[in-house]
Amino acid sequence: MNSTPTPPTPQTVTPAPITLGDRTFHSRLFVGTGKYKDPETMVAALDASGCEVVTVAIRRVDWKSGHDPVMAHLDRKRYTILPNTAGCFEAEDAIRVARLGRELGLGDWVKLEVLGDKKTLLPDPVGTLEATKTLVAEGFTVLAYTSDDPVMALRLQDAGATSVMPAGSPIGSGQGINNRHSLRIILETLTVPVIIDAGVGTASDVTIAMELGAEGVLLNTGIAGAKDPVAMAHAMRHALAAGYFAHRAGRIEKRLYATASSPLEGVLGE
């Protein structure tokens, strides 16, 4: 996970591609399709974000009032569709949703969420681990949403998760990155790509995640809920690049006291 920092060359304007399982993506930003005020805003925001992977949810069909057919707005040639198991509180339900996603033609990829609590939407570690094992055995590529617990992250990697996705803070909370220390330990320990998922409130949160060494960031509400989602998507894209390059540039150590930037010798009046 810890690559030797190499400064970006002036020619380098976009982060290197990211490989997950057998797929390589040019964008490290993964964006959800929920909560946009209309499909046009969603399409424009996804475009501005530069993302290549978008998440969707699977829900009981409402045949009487109908659904906005999100898939009708998504260019399948441009975007890889990643179904999530959001809202599942049991491993078994999450496994069923993953299988239904495959039946819906979305392939073998799943963003696995097994939640443990309705108020915080924090993941249930036991259920998440159980579902990961089952789905990996069934041939799924599992991107596992988890808390910022380093031991749990390791367990999910050992269970065969293609990516481990610790939350920066609770889903949709906009609190940003709450525990940099735990995330740093996860990033130092794991060998699979770590994508920070959830809690992003604004662009600087994405930069912090990438500065810590995350391979990517997944978010939804931070863009969809912004006053101007398209402008925020644009900001998120550049924030990700900033953090990506800063991580590789190698930051200075923090010090308690000042260190002058200009020579201390030869000052007038000495």
């Binding site: 959800g32 929920g34 998440t55 949810a57 009981r60 969809a224």
Partner: peptide, 10 residues
């Protein structure tokens, strides 16, 4: 019986 479809989500 459960009948499901794809909707927007994060």
């Amino acid at each position: 019986i459960e009948i499901v479809t794809i909707v927007g989500g994060g």
